[in-house]
Design a protein around this nucleic acid. Structure first.
Length: 273
DNA sequence: CCAATTGTTATTTA
DNA sequence: ATAAATAACAATTG
């Protein structure tokens, strides 16, 4: 599930643990989410460390602890972060639990497409610093987008929007939302977009990221009651899975199909091939 | 039993 | 050789 704004939402779930010491670490060490991770070192090094800061970028999260310890988390398809009371025992899919005095910080992921990583050092790990420039940064320029679409000219625009090396944090629903707003059919070859359409895609990448962060991750620490409770019905988001769903702008029926290997929803009335 | 799922990556195909 | 398409990963739900 988690894309850019959901990842930021889940990052905030661990905020109650900031500035507090980790007393012990509970893991399911054989779980797939630990592939490539030194679980033993993670458990030994995080026990006794204090959670200092956290950050989210793209679909990644990075938690910095005292002593130059870094915990990286990716939520995959079904991951989530929760804060639980101190006495609550880990559930079946709770692969990593940081036990603090007042609460427990839980990473849970039933399908285990997510990932845990751990590193020690004075600088953030390379996988973090090498992430593509954020869509809401100046580096995400229309020129960079146009060049990227040109290089992937034969691939459907829907598939290209899912490429994290240029569109960090965009996932299936955000890609559909962007193309719907830009009035571009998801199956269009990227190289066939006219300059005005490239501009519309670029602009709506930024707009959807900004609006999704405001609606899902909240502002100034105000956390929404439920993950997607604040998404307006004027978005495609609330209609894309409805049976007989209709385009909020035209009222015409929505279409669904597999494009770029992913289930895709679009409004044929707005988005023409 | 079959098909579906808001992600990523290795492998195969063109 | 490169880019695009496909399969695979795992668990759960309808």
């Amino acid at each position: 599930m988690p894309e850019l704004a959901e990842v930021e939402f889940y990052r905030q779930q661990w905020d109650p643990g900031l500035g507090r010491r980790v007393r012990s670490v509970l893991v399911h060490p054989r779980a797939r989410v630990f592939r490539g991770c030194a679980v033993r070192a993670l458990v030994d090094e995080l026990a006794g460390a204090t959670l200092r800061t956290s950050a989210a970028a793209a679909k990644q999260m990075l938690f910095r602890f005292s002593g130059g310890r870094w915990l990286g988390l990716h939520l995959g398809m079904s991951g989530e972060l929760r804060m639980e009371t101190a006495d609550r025992a880990p559930q079946k899919h709770d692969h990593l639990v940081l036990v603090q005095r007042e609460c427990r910080l839980v990473f849970s992921d039933p399908r285990m497409f997510g990932r845990v990583s751990f590193a020690v050092g004075s600088e953030p790990p390379g996988w973090w610093t090498r992430l593509a420039p954020p869509i809401l940064s100046d580096a995400f320029s229309i020129e960079a987008v146009a060049a990227f679409l040109h290089r992937r000219a034969r691939a459907p625009i829907k598939a290209v929007l899912l490429m994290q090396e240029r569109f960090p944090g965009i996932g299936n629903w955000m890609a559909d939302e962007i193309l719907w707003r830009a009035a571009v059919h998801p199956a269009r070859p990227s190289g066939s977009l006219k300059p005005g359409e490239v501009r519309a895609v670029w602009r709506n990448c930024r707009r959807v990221c900004r609006c999704a962060l405001a609606a899902i991750a909240g502002r100034g620490g105000r956390v929404p009651p439920a993950l997607n409770a604040n998404i307006p019905d004027s978005w495609l988001f609330n209609h894309r899975w409805e049976d007989g769903g209709r385009c909020p702008r035209t009222g015409a029926p929505l279409a669904r199909g597999v494009i770029g290997g992913r289930t895709t929803c679009w409004s044929p009335a707005r988005q023409k091939l």
